[in-house]
């Protein structure tokens, strides 16, 4: 079956029929509950039984949020599909629901959220569903606003289904650029069915607590991601763990120029990444808006 992300924008794909179908499948319910349990575990909240204020990004019909409620937490869920939220409401989930688009940034006050999870949703940001959509800008708006609304030291755990390695890298790079520390945890990397990946991100300066946790079913193996040691035979990069200082690359006002971009794209092609063809639009200057 082809990826839902390639079929239609999320608010169209998850219409009333699909939302109901999604939420009545016992298989889906079970998988989403497991993913949410694991995400909550990776959030590593203090072990003190104090309920926290959490965020569920792309909360859908509330399957993921229910896990948060069962563990005693308060949560705010954001989703772009009205149909999914209507089902969540019908199911009387305890979290508060907001109709919103994470790609437009989260409109939340700074530093107030104790942790965020997102289950099977963030890869949607990599698609340009409207002519006005620029995935990079949307990823930037999303991660920037997520970073700001989290309390210092808080975590975000995002379970994602990237379409390929380039998409995973793209998502991760915008998380790092926003200031997050962390990396990807891949559970059961050797099983095509059970393999699940989580971006585990910590807000604030790197510390012991921002080290990427261990994956499950990994046979004790983890390969760190750097260009020389990446295992080409085995596309299951295990745990990437890195931190880029915030705003490391200060680019001058004029940007890096077309030649730099062309060179970079050529490098990426050599690495086997999918790179858009060079055209007259490549690295063109954008019109200043406003």
């Amino acid at each position: 079956m082809s990826r839902p992300e390639l079929q239609a924008p999320p608010e169209i794909f998850y219409d009333d029929t699909e939302a109901r179908k999604y939420t009545s499948s016992s298989r889906i319910m079970e998988i989403q509950a497991q993913l949410s349990e694991r995400a909550l575990e990776l959030l590593a909240l203090p072990d003190d039984d104090v309920p926290r204020l959490l965020l569920d990004i792309g909360c859908g019909s509330g399957l993921s949020g229910e896990t948060l409620s069962e563990n005693g937490h308060q949560w705010i869920g954001l989703d772009i599909s009205e149909s999914m939220l209507n089902i969540a409401r019908e199911r009387e989930v305890e979290g508060d629901l907001i109709l919103g688009d994470m790609g437009q940034g989260l409109g939340l006050r700074p530093g107030v959220i104790d942790g965020a999870i997102s289950i099977s949703a963030v890869q949607w940001l990599c698609n340009a569903d409207k002519s006005s959509h620029e995935p990079r800008l949307r990823l930037k708006a999303f991660f920037g606003s997520l970073y700001r609304c989290l309390a210092r030291g808080a975590r975000a755990v995002l379970q994602v289904y990237p379409e390929n390695d380039a998409q995973r890298e793209l998502i991760l790079s915008f998380a790092m650029r926003a200031g997050f520390a962390g990396g990807v945890v891949v559970d059961y990397p050797h099983s095509s069915k059970s393999r699940k990946e989580y971006l585990v991100l910590t807000c604030g300066p790197p510390s012991l607590s921002s080290a990427t946790p261990k994956a499950k079913g990994e046979d004790g193996e983890s390969c760190s991601e750097d260009d020389s040691s990446e295992d080409e035979e085995n596309p299951t990069v295990c745990t990437l763990d890195r931190h880029r200082p915030r705003k490391k690359q200060k680019v001058n006002k004029k940007g890096k120029g077309r030649n730099w971009v062309l060179k970079k794209k050529e490098q990426m092609r050599k690495k086997g990444n999918v790179v858009p063809p060079d055209t007259k639009y490549t690295a063109r200057k954008r019109k200043a808006r406003f």
Binding site: L53, Q74, I76, D96, I98, Q104, G105, L106, G107, L108, R109, V112, I113, S145, C149, F290
Partner: peptide, 16 residues
């Protein structure tokens, strides 16, 4: 919508 949520939400409009 709870007032807890209201107390966290802010307007996200460009330029605001």
């Amino acid at each position: 919508m709870k007032l807890l949520t209201h107390n966290m939400l802010s307007s996200n409009i460009k330029g605001v």
